[in-house]
Design a protein around this nucleic acid. Sequence first.
DNA 1: CTAAGGCCCGTACCTTGGTACGGAGTCAAG
DNA 2: CTTGACTCCGTACCAAGGTACGGGCCTTAG
Lengths: 135, 135
Amino acid sequence: MGYLRTGELARRAGVNVETLHFYERKGLLPEPPRRASGYREYPAESVRLIRFIKRAQELGFSLNEIHELLALRVRPGVTCAQVRERAERKSAEVRRKIADLKAIERALRKLTASCSGRGPVAICPVLEYLEGDML
Amino acid sequence: MGYLRTGELARRAGVNVETLHFYERKGLLPEPPRRASGYREYPAESVRLIRFIKRAQELGFSLNEIHELLALRVRPGVTCAQVRERAERKSAEVRRKIADLKAIERALRKLTASCSGRGPVAICPVLEYLEGDML
DNA sequence: CTAAGGCCCGTACCTTGGTACGGAGTCAAG
DNA sequence: CTTGACTCCGTACCAAGGTACGGGCCTTAG
């Protein structure tokens, strides 16, 4: 059988069953077909979807934003131009996050380096990257 | 005078006063000196600290994690080795976030590209990056 | 066929990260 | 020396994102 029941999907995706129901109510997870008994039958690829949601959350996207990301598929009723515009906006946002994370990473590396040798250590390297005029 | 009162700090950092008190209670914002009346006197650099906290939140760090980041300053009582180890762990986490964001950005760019010309569009480019074996 | 374990759904509860309120004291311009 | 804006603190409330519970039906190995 190429389908998963709730518990199996939850186990494979590393969340619990209630979370799946919760995502379904929120519209993040499309309602899967049911068997006669009412049991859900998820396609196997749902695992990737759930994991995507979890990763995106760790990257600072809210469930609403993730919804927007997932809605960025070209479908009848939505024009290409609309999709493109939203994609570009999101893309800019993502690039900015990357830049900020790189700055943090640089600061952390500096801290590691300053600690690996002897000699005086920086006072607060983590905040260092803020020296530039960041609004 | 080189100090800020609560309202001024809040205004400059783009948060509101209650948030400052909240951060102080949580230990994220060190308790500033007070004048006789009880009014807080923040050093001007607190603005950067608050902004750092807000940015880090947008990058998916919880207040507790931000606390850990901020605690990564070398101080008496903490050995260099400890600081270094924590910094390295955080650094790995940050690199992973960067990699994930880059994948998302690639997917978004592909989507933009597929939409800019004529021709058939991808079905769900945003999820595409998950094709690789990502756990 | 029957018992253990899944699943259904609804409701209640929880944590995180704030916001709002309100009474009382403080500061500074006029 | 008053008046309006600011500050204090405590308590209450709020939204997001789940988590737990419980009664009742399904399923499947033995």
